[in-house]
Design a binder for these strands. Structure first.
Lengths: 203, 203, 203, 203
DNA sequence: TATGAATGAGTGTTCATTCAT
DNA sequence: AATGAATGAACACTCATTCAT
């Protein structure tokens, strides 16, 4: 009985690993179940035994993507002392994440679309951890006197996260326009953005 | 078999109106030409007489959406004196726009994806006007000593625009999580965001 | 009344000239009525006043194409004395025609497809002139003792015409295979073909 | 919703049989996938499980057509001793083939159009066998002293094949004209053609 | 007479999902 | 439990022909 349970676990792992490969290869827009089963070397029906539908697979994938993002956040903030530096590092790390895993970022945005309305324990869990992490960052910053204490803590971390998303999406989307002003390189832009933002949060 | 004769102007209006209804109903992701012709009560071929392809229809739609957004920006900023107040108003206006026309906002994001690379006069024009508007806002703010002069002007307006996008997308996407803390209403969040941001840009 | 008649003639000429331009530009496979009216600068309904349908336009075009081919035949055979040389020249001229007007040749083949079964005076007329020309060539050759007199004259000219078509179509279709043996150039092939054929018809 | 389960072999046979029926009924020019699935009584998606696209179906069909043609060539030439007789028989056989399977012949021509540039093992194989067969016929004829040794072997077989195509296409296309002279029956014409041609190739 | 706006049946292709084996 | 053959609704787009003006 535990054996079967492990087999089931293994199967799901097998599927999601294949799905990950497919996603990183072709991106969410051209992601198909057929490609997944080919990569996994299993039957099509099997996928639907473990995942109610395609979207459920994507949920598992986005969980992975968010965990990776969170890990990155944790690593880069550890290295800094001052909390405004931590925040700056976090924003930069978010952009770096996009550059390394653009397909993952694409997925995260895709799954955030309102029609998804995901109600899955794993997803909610990692979302919550991400939320807790940024929340904590702001809270600690306020306790240490690095961040404006009049800012609502719960609110601040949403805004922080929003800015991370924004700077990435916008910088990339505006690639074309930026060509006209290519004296402005993207990293400088990210840095300036981080600067303004931390400035605004400071005491 | 040929239907009613209409002036070209009328027909195009009829088509784009139908397209707009479809967009507002189902969103860009489920927008199809078939739905448009059904709404408009016209033949399929007719659409392709007025629009080279589906994307051209979307361009017309996005131009409309951007013009509406820009008008909103212009109106709310006029009412303010101090440039940091203008910026704050702009950010709030952006969010209000999203609440009123969420599908339009979705469309704007959709069309910004690099694979579109739109080369249409109307689109480029309104894009440019939007760009010019935010650029000017920052520039004037710096000249009046309201905005930190060490900020690169060209860069600032990109960041400004990015933040508008961000606060909207994120606040909405996280609706679900916010339910847990619904003591935080979204407007307050937008206000705080605007506050932080203008603080960061100030002298 | 004669004025109107001439106008009608003019209109037809206008249409067919535009059609010719379109054909030579895009070929029969992508030939559309829309392109014709654009080139001609006239209304769509007008075309259907003068031509029952698209195929009738093609008939007029193929007549033009066949007349051009015949003219070529007449010119190159005039220069030769011996009738086997005339035949050889005719075969070579046919290939040259294809090289100069491939789209016309394509059209001729297209219109020869059995489902067309053209019953149009102009087409039958030029077909007949072509037939008469080759018929005469063989007949004279026989009278002068250059061509085997036991060959049925009426039959020979069909065969002659068939070979013209063949050598062209085949040489072109096999371009790819010929690359493998590109020591065999196409002109040499045409020449050899003409040689064999005249040899076979000789006394 | 999924229909009967069949072996892959059976299904492919079922599809290609339906495709064959469609081809023989309406010809290559009006051949559509929709007709095939209707004839086969299967779903549209099923076709695309077995054939990447429409063209791949046509390739399978043309392979069948070419094999049939080659078999005919082999049979009729075996019965003859002298190589010029073999060639004559081959030309006649080609015409007979056309009379029996005109739509197949049409298909063969269609697929030879340069834009196809088929890169499929089966097709290349049968093409090569056909090529080898005619090449060998000429080569042996030369070795036995039946065919003019000064003729380039590689070239001759192209010409031979070209003539086969020609005599068929032309004779049929000119059916209408022949009616005027219907004292000339088509078989006699083919015979005469074969006569002239072998005469030309002889020593 | 001339127009040209309107049509809609077709066209090849995709892919998430089902269910008999 | 695992399969994978089968499905068919969708999709964007074309173009010869019609007919009200």
């Amino acid at each position: 009985m535990p054996g079967k349970r492990e087999t089931a676990e293994t199967r799901k792992l097998q599927i999601i690993s294949a799905a990950e490969l497919v996603l990183l290869e072709v991106g969410i827009e051209r992601f198909t179940v057929d490609q997944v089963i080919e990569k996994a070397g299993i039957g099509k029906g099997t996928v639907y035994k473990y995942y109610r539908n395609k979207d459920q697979m994507l949920v598992d994938l986005v969980v992975k993507a968010l965990e990776l993002l969170l890990t990155g956040f944790q690593e880069v903030t550890e290295e800094k002392e001052h909390h405004l530096d931590k925040i700056k590092a976090l924003i930069q790390s978010c952009y770096a994440y996009y550059q390394t895993y653009p397909k993952y970022f694409e997925l995260i945005s895709y799954m955030e679309r309102p029609e998804f309305d995901i109600d899955e324990a794993n997803y909610l869990a990692v979302s919550h951890r991400l939320q807790a992490f940024t929340h904590n960052l702001v809270l600690e910053g306020q306790q240490k006197g690095h961040i404006n204490p009049s800012l609502d803590t719960a609110m601040s971390h949403y805004i922080l996260w929003a800015c991370c998303v924004a700077v990435v999406e916008f910088v990339e989307a505006k690639k074309k326009l930026l060509k006209d002003h290519h004296e402005i390189d993207r990293h400088a832009m990210v840095d300036t953005f981080a600067e303004v933002f931390t400035q605004g949060m400071g005491v």
